[in-house]
């Protein structure tokens, strides 16, 4: 048992929260001292800001066509050039990034939510219920992820929410396992046993004590599952199952832009592909940094 949790085990409710806050402050300090994850965080903030505000900086809508102005390279008028229907690539790229980030974040958060509830219940109940619930998770794990996502997207018909839905059908398994493992460990701690002893009920116990202490690894998991979801959507786009027109995600833009490797208007591929890569890199670097910062082994 680490010293932090040992201390937690003996303090009452309010102190426990304060201690948890201290833990996060420590983690943040450790994170700040590392250049790469911090750079990644800054990049992500900039990306999110541009994804929200970027399209507003130009006088074009992401779906406004100008057929006579198609396939123009980047210029002062169109900072990222135009696509094959003469649509402004700057507006498209950022609204595409918005859609991709929305898909990634929503899918990751929903995975987390389901995982927390399912894993929390399984871990807390333990015994027979836990055994059964985890068997079910194992079963779903046996189905190849991409195969299932493709099948479900076909069943639901491609659309923004149906794609997210298809991804979370088995996407929550990882976080459920994670939460359950954490809870299983914490559940036997003295302070939890004590809290139970004085009649604190499960939902409160879960929200106040178990969850905050399991949060570290979960945050790391989310940082990795956002880019995974973005990538999966891109693969679906390649198979023609991405978000339907006139919506465009970075994935559908990359997939539409593949042809430019042969036709020459490479900015139509390089810009969305570059953005995907940047998002992937930033999330991965941030995830690595967070993992190191939150690693209990580095706790002093």
């Amino acid at each position: 048992m680490t010293s932090a949790t040992k201390r937690l085990a003996t303090v009452p409710d309010a102190d426990a929260r304060r201690a948890a806050r201290g833990f996060w402050r420590d983690a943040l300090r450790r994170l700040r001292s590392r250049p790469l994850p911090m750079a990644a965080a800054v990049v992500l903030i900039i990306l999110v800001v541009l994804a929200v505000a970027g399209p507003l900086l130009v006088p074009y809508s992401y779906d406004a066509q100008d057929l006579l102005n198609a396939n123009q390279p980047p210029s002062a008028g169109n900072w990222f050039g135009t696509d094959d229907l003469g649509r402004d690539m700057w507006a498209r790229a950022w609204s595409g990034a918005r859609i991709s980030l929305f898909i990634g974040v929503t899918a990751a958060l929903l995975d987390l939510l389901i995982g927390i509830v399912y894993g929390g219940v399984a871990g807390y109940r333990g015994g027979r219920a836990d055994e059964l619930m985890m068997r079910f998770v194992d079963m779903l794990y046996g189905i190849p992820y991409l195969l299932l996502v493709i099948l479900l997207t076909v069943v639901f018909q491609p659309g923004l929410f149906s794609i997210i839905l298809a991804m979370i059908v088995t996407g929550w398994l990882g976080s459920a396992r994670l939460v359950r493992g954490q809870i299983l460990q914490l559940r036997e701690m003295e302070y939890i046993v004590a809290a139970r002893g004085i009649g604190v009920r499960f939902p409160r116990l879960f929200a106040r004590h178990l969850l905050p202490n399991a949060l570290g690894p979960l945050v790391v998991a989310v940082t990795f599952s956002v880019p995974h979801a973005i990538f999966t959507e891109a693969t679906l786009s390649f198979l023609g199952l991405g978000v339907p027109a006139p919506l465009a995600s970075l994935g559908t833009m990359v997939s539409d832009g593949l042809i430019t490797m042969l036709s020459g208007e490479v900015w139509r591929l390089a810009i969305p592909a570059g953005l995907i890569s940047l998002i992937m890199l930033a999330f991965n670097a941030l995830g690595d940094g967070l993992r190191d910062a939150l690693d209990p082994r580095t706790l002093g």
Binding site: F231, L258, I276, L278, M280, N284
Partner: peptide, 18 residues
């Protein structure tokens, strides 16, 4: 290591072919 996990394979493939 970072490029390998950040570029989709359907971009890598046509590029390598080309």
């Amino acid at each position: 290591g970072t490029l390998g996990i950040s570029v989709p394979s359907f971009v890598v493939a046509p590029l390598l072919i080309d």
